[in-house]
Nucleic acid binder design. Structure first.
Length: 574
DNA sequence: GCCGTTTTCGGCCCGACTGTTTTCAGTCG
C-alpha cells in the first residue's frame, strides 16, 4: 500500500505551491488530496488500477493524473517544476515556530536562508530583526523555537499518556470554584491513538481568574500564550496544553469547534454556508439577520444544518458527513457493550495478579466473563507454560468458576507464532483450551513475505481463533513488523479467524484505519483485548473501544461484546 | 485545483493572539 507515500508527495506539492505563491486555493486543494489519501481505507494503487481515483473526494482530473504519473514513474512533473523554483528545504524552515509561508519566503528572498542551520546563524547575528514584518521579539522567538524543537516531543504521544494527563489537569481545575464546567476536547475526545496536544474547554464567567489559575498549575513548564479567552502552556512532560474559556450559553458551539477535526469542521461550515448560515466557536448565525440560532448544545449545532449529532470519534471527514446527511450513521460500539475481556495474563506466566484478582476486577468492570490467556511455553522470557502447567491452571480456573458463577472464566492461551510459522502445540493438544489466541512474539525483523506467511500458516491450525496484535508495534518504542496485512485479512476471512484490536495503550494494534479496512473490505470480526498483565491494565479497554469506534465498528462486529451464551456458542463452533 | 438541487464560473471556514503596526499581517489551531 503506497497511500502514505502518495500523500507525502501532495503535502510537498501543497507546501511548495504556497511558497511559489500560486493561487492559494490550489495549495489547499493539494492539501485536501494529501489528507484524503492518507486516510483512505483502500490502497490508492487499487483505485488507480480501476480508474476510480476521481471518486475520492477532492481528487479531480489534474490530481488523478498526478497520482497516476507518480505510481507509474515515481515522479510528478509539477512537483519537479516547483522544486526548480523553490528549494525543498524551505518546507523544513516553515516548521520552525514563528515561521510560516510568508516569513520563510521573506527569509529566503532577502537573506537567501534555505536551511534551519543558516536560519539559526542569521538569528544569532541579529540579521533577522530588521527585516520587514520581523522584529526583535520574533528573532528571539525563532531562536527559542529552534531550541524547543530539539526538546519537544517530536512524535505525537500515545493517548495512554495524554488522556490521564488531561484528566489530572481537569481534576485540578475542577477544584477551582470559578470553573463551572470543564471538558476535554480535541483529538483526545476523538480518541485518536496519538495526540499532538491537549485541548481543554472551561465554562466560567470569570475567565481571567481561570487563566491565572491554569498557568500557575504545578505541571506548567512555561507559558506559550496567555489571553482572556485562550491560553497555551507547555507541560513538564513537554506536552502542549491549550485551555479555552467560554460563557455557559456557548458551551455546545465551543465543544463542537474545539473537538474538531479541522477537516470535519471545515465541511460542517461549508454546509452551513450553503444554507446561508455561519458557524464559529460562538454558535450558528443566520447571515441575513446576524442572529445566533444555536449555541448551547452540540446537538443543536448539528441540527441547525440538518444533521444528527455525530460521534466525536468519527469526525474526520472520512464519510461521516455524507452518511449523516442520509441519516444512516451506524450505532457505534460503546464501552458498556463489552461483556468480557478475553486477552489477559496472570501470575501463571508474566502477569502481576492472580486469576482470582483478575476475575474480581472483571466483576468490578461489569463484565460477565473473561478468558485467561497466559503465554505458551516457547516464550521463555514471559515464563511461558508447558501443557502440564496449563493443566494446573485449568484446575484452578474450574474451582474459581464454581465460586464466581454465573460469571465465567474461560481457559485460554496466547500461543506463539514461531519463526517458521508453527505454533507451540499441536491441534490435538490445543483441545485442552476453551479458546486459543496466537501472536508473533519473536523473529519480528524477518522480511515481509516470511512474516506474512507465518501468520497465515498459524491460521491453518483449527484451534486458533484470533491473531493478537497483528502488527506488533509498541507506540514510541518499537516499529510494526513488516507484514502484508491484506494477505492476512484475506486468510482471516477465509478461515473465519478474528483479528485483535489490542487495547493496551502501549499498542493499539490494529489501529483505527486498519480495523476499518478489515471490516469494510474483508468483513472480519474482532476481539478487543487489553492484553492486561495486571488488574490496572484491564482499564485500557476504553482505548480499544476508542479504536473500534474510530473504525466505525458496531456491537455486532466485536466478539467480546457478545453475551456469555453467544460467546460460548462462538467458541464451541468448531 | 475542485466543485455545484439555487452556480460549469466564481467561489473556496473562522477567529484568537502576538508583534509590529498606527490599522494589520502572520501564525496557529
Amino acid at each position: 500500500m503506497r497511500n502514505k507515500e502518495v500523500a507525502q508527495k501532495f503535502y510537498e506539492l501543497a507546501g511548495l505551491s504556497e511558497l511559489a505563491e500560486e493561487n492559494p486555493f490550489k495549495a489547499r486543494a493539494y492539501l485536501k488530496v494529501a489528507q484524503q489519501i492518507e486516510n483512505l481505507p483502500v490502497p490508492v494503487e487499487d483505485l488507480a488500477r480501476e480508474g476510480k481515483l476521481t471518486s475520492i473526494k477532492g481528487v479531480g482530473k489534474a490530481s488523478a493524473n498526478k497520482i497516476l504519473q507518480y505510481l507509474n514513474t515515481g515522479h510528478i512533473d509539477k512537483l519537479e517544476e516547483l522544486k526548480k523554483k523553490i528549494p525543498e528545504s524551505l518546507l523544513e524552515l516553515e516548521k520552525v515556530p514563528e515561521l510560516g509561508v510568508r516569513r520563510a519566503k521573506i527569509l529566503f528572498d532577502t537573506l537567501g536562508i534555505q536551511s534551519v542551520e543558516s536560519l539559526k546563524k542569521a538569528a544569532m547575528q541579529g540579521k533577522i530583526r530588521n527585516l520587514p514584518g520581523f522584529g526583535e521579539k520574533i528573532e528571539k522567538g525563532i531562536l527559542k523555537g529552534l531550541e524547543d524543537m530539539k526538546n519537544r516531543q517530536s512524535e505525537r504521544i500515545s493517548i495512554g499518556i495524554a488522556l490521564p494527563l488531561a484528566e489530572s489537569i481537569v481534576d485540578e481545575l475542577k477544584k477551582y470554584s470559578p470553573v463551572e464546567k470543564i471538558k476535554i476536547c480535541g483529538s483526545i475526545r476523538r480518541m485518536k491513538g496519538t495526540i499532538g496536544d491537549i485541548d481543554i474547554l472551561v465554562v466560567s464567567n470569570n475567565p481571567v481568574s481561570v487563566m491565572d489559575k491554569f498557568v500557575s498549575l504545578g505541571m506548567v513548564k512555561n507559558v506559550i500564550v496567555k489571553g482572556e479567552k485562550k491560553s497555551s502552556i507547555l507541560s513538564t512532560e513537554n506536552i502542549q496544553v491549550d485551555l479555552r474559556v467560554v460563557q455557559r450559553e456557548l458551551f455546545g458551539a465551543a465543544i463542537q469547534y474545539f473537538t474538531g477535526s479541522k477537516e470535519h469542521n471545515i465541511r460542517i461550515r461549508e454546509l452551513a454556508n450553503k444554507r446561508n448560515l455561519k458557524i464559529n466557536e460562538y454558535g450558528v448565525f443566520d447571515l441575513n439577520t446576524n442572529k445566533c440560532i444555536a449555541s448551547e448544545t452540540e446537538e443543536s449545532i448539528y441540527e441547525s444544518i440538518g444533521l444528527p449529532w455525530i460521534p466525536p470519534e468519527i469526525r474526520e471527514d472520512s464519510g461521516e458527513i455524507e452518511l449523516a446527511i442520509e441519516g444512516k450513521l451506524p450505532k457505534l460500539i460503546e464501552l458498556t457493550d463489552i461483556r468480557g475481556d478475553i486477552h489477559l495474563h496472570s501470575l501463571y506466566s508474566d502477569g502481576m495478579n492472580s486469576i482470582e484478582e483478575m476475575a474480581q476486577q472483571a466483576l468490578q468492570l461489569g463484565y460477565n466473563y473473561i478468558a485467561i490467556t497466559d503465554h505458551a511455553r516457547a516464550l521463555g522470557v514471559a515464563n511461558g507454560l508447558s501443557i502440564e502447567r496449563y493443566k494446573d491452571e485449568k484446575k484452578e480456573i474450574e474451582q474459581l468458576n464454581r465460586k464466581f458463577a454465573p460469571f465465567k472464566i474461560f481457559f485460554g492461551t496466547e500461543l506463539n507464532i514461531l519463526s517458521d510459522g508453527r505454533i507451540d502445540f499441536s491441534d490435538e493438544e490445543l483441545n485442552l483450551f476453551d479458546i486459543c489466541l496466537a501472536g508473533i512474539h519473536s523473529g519480528m525483523n524477518q522480511e515481509k513475505g516470511k512474516i506474512t506467511n507465518r501468520i497465515i500458516n498459524a491460521m491453518s491450525y483449527n484451534s486458533v481463533r484470533a491473531i493478537t496484535h497483528p502488527l506488533g508495534g509498541i507506540i514510541g518504542r518499537r516499529n510494526n513488523y513488516d507484514v502484508d496485512l491484506d494477505s492476512v485479512f484475506k486468510e482471516a476471512q477465509k478461515r473465519d479467524v478474528l483479528v485483535e484490536i489490542n487495547a493496551s495503550s502501549q499498542r493499539l494494534d490494529l489501529n483505527d484505519i486498519n480495523a476499518r479496512r478489515a471490516k469494510e473490505i474483508y468483513n472480519l470480526k474482532f476481539e478487543i483485548g487489553t492484553d492486561a498483565h495486571s488488574i490496572d491494565g484491564m482499564k485500557d479497554m476504553r482505548y480499544g473501544i476508542g479504536v473500534a469506534r474510530r473504525a466505525w465498528l458496531t456491537k455486532s462486529d466485536v466478539i467480546n461484546a457478545f453475551s456469555l451464551e453467544e460467546f460460548e456458542e462462538f467458541i464451541g463452533k468448531r
